[in-house]
Design a protein around this nucleic acid. Structure first.
Length: 106
DNA sequence: CGAATGACCAAGC
DNA sequence: GGCTTGGCCATTC
């Protein structure tokens, strides 16, 4: 486990872990909830270095598609994971983010 | 400790 | 309408 114990990373990981099935959040959104709206990149950093067990496939960028560097299989794997949750994926590997964008209500 | 990196975002061309 | 540039801020080497 990496040193991802900082407030941001902990919040980010916590938020991602709470995303319900079939819902999505953008990096910027998570970053804002974590306390830094500008730290969208850091969310990606957490995704890349730590908490690999979290449902990162439910985390998408503003485009509505999965981030650029998903593990081997990349968008292919992402698409399978998302579709497995009953979500339609666009030819561009994008989901209807504006419709499925979720927000932690608590 | 200093420099480089990155699963992003927004603006510019 | 798609590609390039700059800026952001924490983590890594």
């Amino acid at each position: 486990m990496s040193d991802f114990q900082s407030d941001f990373s902990l919040k980010v990981q916590s938020i991602v872990a709470q995303i319900p099935e079939g819902r999505f959040m953008t990096y910027g959104q998570i970053a804002a909830l974590a306390g830094n709206a500008r730290a969208a990149r850091i969310v990606g950093g957490v995704a890349h270095f730590g908490a690999t067990e979290l449902p990162w496939h439910r985390v998408v960028n503003k485009k509505g598609g999965l981030a650029a560097g998903f593990p081997s299989g990349g968008r292919i794997l992402h698409r399978q994971l998302v579709e497995a949750e009953g979500v339609a994926v666009d030819s561009n590997d994008r989901v209807d983010i504006e419709r499925l964008m979720w927000w932690p209500e608590n």
